[in-house]
Each structure stands twice: as C-alpha cells, then as structure tokens.
Design a protein around this nucleic acid. Sequence first.
DNA 1: ACCTGAACACCGTTCAAGT
DNA 2: ACCTGAACACCGTTCAAGT
Lengths: 210, 210
Amino acid sequence: MPTPARTSLDDIVQAGRDILASDGLPALTMQAVADRVGVRAPSLYKRVRSRDDLVRLIATTVAHELGDQLEALVSRDGATSEAQAQLTELAHAVRAFAYACPDEYRLIFAPTCETTRPEPEALTHSVGPLLRITTELAGPDSALDAARTVTAWATGFIGMELAGAFRLGGDIDRAYEFGITRLAAALASVPGTPSNQAMHRDPHDGPDHD
Amino acid sequence: MPTPARTSLDDIVQAGRDILASDGLPALTMQAVADRVGVRAPSLYKRVRSRDDLVRLIATTVAHELGDQLEALVSRDGATSEAQAQLTELAHAVRAFAYACPDEYRLIFAPTCETTRPEPEALTHSVGPLLRITTELAGPDSALDAARTVTAWATGFIGMELAGAFRLGGDIDRAYEFGITRLAAALASVPGTPSNQAMHRDPHDGPDHD
DNA sequence: ACCTGAACACCGTTCAAGT
DNA sequence: ACCTGAACACCGTTCAAGT
C-alpha cells in the first residue's frame, strides 16, 4: 500500500546546504539532514545514493548558481567596460562569494575527493563568463590557457586565504589586487593581440612560444 | 612497574606517511597506524593527542622536507641562472613533487581543515626559496606580493589538476608553461626594477598602485 | 511506494586494569 | 611508564518488516 512521500530530493539538498552553511562539512551527516527534513536517516537513501552523492548534488547546485551570478555580472556591463576591468570585477566577485559562503565555495573549488566533486557541466558553466573575457583579452588561441591561469591563481589565492595560510604579514587585499592587476596586464600583452579586438586578429600569428 | 616503549613518535609519523602515500588520507586511521607499528590503537594516544594531531605532524614533516628540496634546487644554481629561469625551475619542481606524492602534497597545500594544517614554521620554510627569487625579480617592496601571486597560481593550478578539474581539453602541460612564463614576465616588469639588480634599487620609487 | 527500527561494520577516543 | 581490553558515542549503510 503506497504511502505519500514525506520529503523530496530538493528538500534534502536544501537541508544539506543549510547545514553546510551554518555548521560546516563535517556536520553534514545523514542523521542531521534526516532530522531537518523530518525523516529517519535510512529514508534518505530512497533519493540519494550515498552521502558523497548528496554532497556532490549540493556542490553542483551551488556551482551552477555561482555561474549564473557571474554571468549576470559580466553581461550587465560587458559592453561598457573593457576586458581587463571585467576580469578584475570577476575576480572580486568570486572572492566575495568565498567570503560570504566559505564552505560552499570550498565544495566547488577545493573538493575533498573525487566522488564529491561537482558535475563537470556545472563547473564549465561557472567558468563560462571568464572564458569569454579571456577570449577578448588574450585572443581565441590563448583564451583557454589564460582562463586556466586566472582560475588557478584566484582559487589558489582564496583557498590559501580560507586556510589561513598567509602568515608572513602584509596586506592580503593588496596582494590580491597586485595579482589580478599583473595577471590582467600579462594576459593582454600578447604580441599582435589588441586587447579589444581579439576576434579580428590574424589567427596565424600565434605567439605562444613554449 | 615500567614497561619498555614498544614504539616511538617517529615510528608513528613514519607509519602514517607510508599509509598516506600508499592508500590515501581516508585510510590513515588510528587502527591502521597502530597495526603498522605493532601496537593497539589506544596506545597511540600516549604520543599523539588525536588523529588530527598526527596528520598535522605528518604535514609538517613533509612540508619541511619539501622546503629542503627546493632550497637545494635553488641554491645549486642560484648564482648561474637568472631569476625568471629559477622561478620556472621552482614551479616545475613543486609540480613534480605533487605528481610524485599527491596525497602528501595535498596535506601541505590543500589542507582539509585548520587542525591538520602544517605548522606555520614549516610552511614558511617551504616558501623561503621562492621569496628570495621574487625579491630578486620584483624587488623587496613587491617580493611578498609577488611570492603570493606565484604560490597562489601554482597551488591553484596543481590543486585543480589533482582534482581533475581541467575538463575543457587542451594541453595541461602547455597551460602550466603558459602561466609561469606570463607570471615571470609580469612580475619582473616593475617599472624601475631591473630584474637582476633588485637589491640596488631606490626603495622610494615604489610603483604599486592599488 | 515509502518509511522505519534494528543491526552491522567501522570510526576516534577514554579509562580502568594490568605489567 | 607504557600497554591493553572493554566500552562509549558516533558514523554511513543495509534490510527485513511494517503501512
């Protein structure tokens, strides 16, 4: 005899996010999620394969939302400001997100293990805006390398920051500003790639030397 | 009546490293360590406050060793090659270490939580060589910011690589080369700071704009 | 079809009891 | 002084039994 469902996958994912945000990843136990949605722990396995699966679902959701956020930010003033300024804005937005939601951020950009990593599609989506900017900035041939350089730097910087790894004094905000300024300049300085007309350059003067 | 010690802190840390290297962090349980050193799990608490404490001890040891390794590398040809080349060499050495010992690497540069992070002294030691190079490259005023930029980029890149985050195709080795080349050039290009005579520049022309 | 209690195998950790 | 078995509180997960 069928009984009505007392919860849903969305409920469970949302409950998980709430617990993650308020108490951190170790507190995200099946027991805690079950309590919050008003069900016993074993029932969760009707909607979710495992705890890692749940964590991955949360990570994917958050990554997708962050992507939307960055997309909105970039498309809002994409026409008015130039690529270097957009890149800086993007870098600050990601850092602001990490400050606001450190545990969610870590789930996306500092995944504990393979099984909890957000789905590739969500990651790709969250990097979309950056890729458009680096295409404009460094040209189509170098766009991917440039995006990877920026992503690596930003996630590395913020990850170290969240981990409390900057212990030699100095102004951390200033160090972030230093990094994005130098990076933006370095990525734009491809010979033969004017920073605002990348789409019109000759594809045969590829300067990447390595 | 005193009984002779059947193990030691060094034994325990070494056993932990072995387990970490062969089976990963989740396999590094007190039980597994105890089995390996030939003792029962509760006995470990005579030498170690907790599992996290043990993980931290391992992380500290590894960070210190990596520092020694990088120190040797840089001081070996510090006089002969220029700063940009040394920086590139350093970046490749760190990446090689991450490939050889991914779990040990993660313990240092992608710490799971605060309580397992290597001791500050060990981290500082491991970054020493880099700081000397960026001093030469970017000048004393920007040395710390420059070192942070490089560290952030390298740890971010390698962390993403180990997490399998580069999913858009392209040559990853090439992307790493791209990054370090651009970074080295960007950090050296401080107005008024010739890349090989940073120690002799006028400290009052500090160009950092932010 | 969904939910539950009971159970299992595993954690880290404590502690009184042994030598 | 060190080691141990037993125990505790917690995990994630499975499953037969209920409705």
